[in-house]
Design a protein around this nucleic acid. Structure first.
Length: 477
RNA sequence: GCCGGGAUAGCCUAGAGGCGAGGCGGCGGACUGCAGAUCCGCUUUACGGGGGUUCAACUCCCCCUCCCGGCUCCA
C-alpha cells in the first residue's frame, strides 16, 4: 500500500513517491538552543520520529538530518542576560536537548549540522545568491530581495501586498523593501562574528537550513518538516533562497508540519510562559506515557495539554502493557497447537485484521490516533481469549505478541517489555518471594503478605492473585 | 484585512453519503482475605445552529455562532 502524506505546499494529501526509489531523505528543523526543550518541541520531534520509524518499517532507507541553530539573536540576548558566553550557552542547551530526545526514545538523526560548523558553506551560498542577482548588500547586512523571486508565498499562501498591510513588516535600516529578509548580519560590537566578503558578521536565520539541508540531502529531496509556526516566514524564505540559488524546482517534494500544543486554549510557548519542560514531565511520567500522549492525536491537529490528558494516556498504555503481560503469562501454560478451535480462529482473525487496519491508518498521513484503535482491539481480544480458553494455543499467542512488537517498533513503545531478556535470576527471585508469600497467605498472615506485595510494587513488580495462583507483571509505565 | 484549522455521547480522540466508533471515567454483576488484573452488562437513539442537495447527511453545498492559529521571535 502507498503512503499518503498531507503536503502543506499543495494543501492536499498526496501519494508519497520519493525521488530515489527505496530511499527517503528528510530534514526536520531543529531547535534554537537557548532554553530547555518543552512539550511543544517534544510533540514535533516525537511525531517526526514516528513518521521516520514508519517509513523505515515500510522498507525505506531513511536519511535524516536535523539542524541546530547555535548562533542567533536569541542566544546572544540570553547570553547577555546570564553573563554566559553565547557559545557555552548554546552547547549547554544543545546537550540538554539531545538528552531529552534520548529520554523520549526519539531515534537520533544521521547528521545534526550546527550553524557554527557550516559558516563557510553559508557564505558560499549567499555569494551565489548575490552573483545571481537575488541578494544585495545593505549597510547592516546582506538581504534577499523577495520581489525578484516570482514564486514567493507559495507555501504559506502569502500575498505580498497583503503582507505589507499586515503591519508587522519592519522596514529595517539596510533593506530596500520591507519584505526583504536578511541573509548575513553584520556584527555589532561585542557580538560573535565570522569573517566574510561583507565584513565580520553572522548568518541570518533562514539561510542555515537551505545551506545545510542541501549539503547533506542534495539540491532536491523528499521531506522537510517542522512545527506549524515555521511555515511562514521560515520555510517560505528557505524555498525562495534555495530555488533561487539552484534553479531547481521543487526543492522539497513534501512539506510536513505539526500542530501546536495548546494550554487552556493558547499555544504553548516560551513567550507566554505557559510551557512545561520535558524534564519536569519526565519526573512525573515515563517517556512512553509522553509518547503515547502525543500519538493519541494526529500530528497536524492541535494537542491540548492537561495533566488529566496525560493521566489518560498513562491508563491507556497501562492497559496495553497488561495485555502484553497477560500474553506472557498465558504462554507459560500454552499448548502445542495440535488443533485449533473456534477461539483460535477468532483471535487470529482479530490480529490479522487489526494489523491491516493499523497499516491503513498509518498509510493515511500517519494517522496515529486512528491506528490506536486496532491496538486496543487486539488487547481486548487477547484478554477475552485468555479468560475464555483453559489451554491457550502457543501459536496464536505468539502472533499477538508479534503484533505488539511491531507496534512497539513503529511507535517506540513497549521497550520495557521486549528489550529485556536474560534476567532469569531476577525472575527466580520473584518466584521465590511469591512462594514465600503464598505460604504466608495460607497461614493467613496477610499483613506480611501484603507488605511483600507492596514492596515489590514499589520495585515495579505487580503481584496478582487469581484462581490458579499468583502471577506477576512488570509495571513499565 | 488576508490565509489556515476546529466544534463528535460525562471526558479524550478517530472517521465518514446508507453498514461495529476506540479509549478513559462512572455504575452493576462474576472472581477475591484485601488489592490488582480480567470477563459480562449498562452509561451510548454522539456528531455546534439554521437552511439546502439526496431515496438517505454526522459526512456534500450555503449561511450563521463560537474557538484557535499564522501574517518576519517560535517546534
Amino acid at each position: 500500500m502507498d503512503v499518503k502524506v498531507y503536503n502543506t505546499l499543495t494543501r492536499e494529501k498526496e501519494v508519497f513517491v520519493p525521488l530515489r526509489e527505496g530511499e527517503v531523505r528528510m530534514y526536520v528543523c531543529g531547535p534554537t538552543v537557548y532554553d530547555y526543550t518543552h512539550l511543544g518541541h517534544a510533540r514535533t520531534y516525537v511525531a517526526f520520529d514516528v513518521i521516520r520509524r514508519y517509513l523505515e518499517h515500510k522498507g525505506y532507507s531513511v536519511l535524516m538530518v536535523m539542524n541546530f541553530t547555535d548562533i542567533d539573536d536569541k542566544i546572544i540576548r540570553r547570553a547577555n542576560e546570564t553573563g554566559e558566553d553565547p557559545k557555552e550557552l548554546a552547547n549547554r542547551f544543545l546537550k540538554f536537548f539531545l538528552e531529552d530526545m534520548e529520554a523520549l526514545k526519539v531515534k537520533p538523526a544521521d547528521v545534526y549540522p550546527r550553524v557554527t560548523e557550516h559558516i563557510q558553506e553559508i557564505i558560499d551560498f549567499v555569494k551565489k545568491l548575490e552573483e545571481k542577482g537575488y541578494a544585495y548588500e545593505g549597510n547592516d547586512g546582506v538581504y534577499f530581495e523577495v520581489r525578484k523571486f516570482e514564486d514567493y508565498g507559495k507555501l504559506g499562501k502569502i500575498n505580498l501586498e497583503e503582507l505589507k498591510k499586515g503591519a508587522r513588516v519592519e522596514p529595517g535600516e539596510g533593506k530596500r523593501n520591507p519584505e526583504d529578509f536578511v541573509l548575513w548580519k553584520k556584527a555589532k560590537p561585542g557580538e560573535p562574528k565570522w569573517d566574510s566578503p561583507w565584513g565580520e558578521g553572522r548568518p541570518g536565520w533562514h539561510i542555515e537550513c537551505s545551506t545545510m539541508s542541501t549539503k547533506y540531502l542534495g539540491e532536491q529531496f523528499d521531506i522537510h518538516g517542522g512545527g506549524n509556526d515555521l511555515i511562514f516566514p521560515h520555510h517560505e524564505n528557505e524555498i525562495a533562497q534555495t530555488e533561487a540559488c539552484t534553479g531547481k524546482k521543487p526543492w522539497v517534494r513534501y512539506w510536513l508540519h505539526t500542530g501546536f500544543v495548546m494550554v487552556r486554549g493558547e499555544k504553548m510557548s516560551k513567550s507566554l510562559g505557559n510551557f512545561v519542560t520535558i524534564r519536569e514531565l519526565l519526573e512525573r511520567y515515563s517517556p512512553e506515557v509522553l509518547r503515547f500522549f502525543v500519538l493519541q492525536r494526529h500530528y497536524r491537529s492541535p494537542l491540548d495539554y492537561t495533566e488529566e490528558g496525560i493521566q489518560h494516556a498513562k491508563n491507556n498504555l497501562e492497559r496495553l502493557y497488561h495485555a502484553i503481560e497477560n500474553l506472557r503469562i498465558a504462554l507459560e501454560k500454552a499448548e502445542m497447537p495440535f488443533k485449533w478451535g473456534e477461539e483460535e480462529f477468532e483471535l487470529y482473525e482479530s490480529i490479522r485484521s487489526a494489523g491491516k487496519r493499523f497499516h491503513e491508518a498509518m498509510d493515511d498521513d500517519f494517522n496515529t490516533a486512528e491506528a490506536m484503535k486496532p491496538i486496543f482491539e487486539v488487547a481486548n481480544a487477547v484478554n477475552a481469549y485468555i479468560t475464555k480458553v483453559e489451554k491457550p494455543k502457543a501459536s496464536v499467542l505468539r502472533k499477538a505478541l508479534e503484533f505488539f512488537r511491531m507496534i512497539g517498533e513503529v511507535f517506540g513503545l513497549f521497550e520495557g517489555y521486549f528489550k529485556e531478556e536474560g534476567e532469569s535470576r531476577e525472575e527466580e527471585l520473584i518466584e521465590l518471594l511469591i512462594q514465600v508469600r503464598s505460604e504466608l497467605r495460607k497461614q493467613r498472615n496477610f499483613a506480611l503478605a501484603d507488605e511483600i506485595r507492596a514492596k515489590l510494587r514499589e520495585m515495579g513488580i505487580q503481584l496478582e492473585d487469581g484462581p490458579q495462583g499468583t502471577i506477576w507483571k512488570r509495571i513499565n509505565v
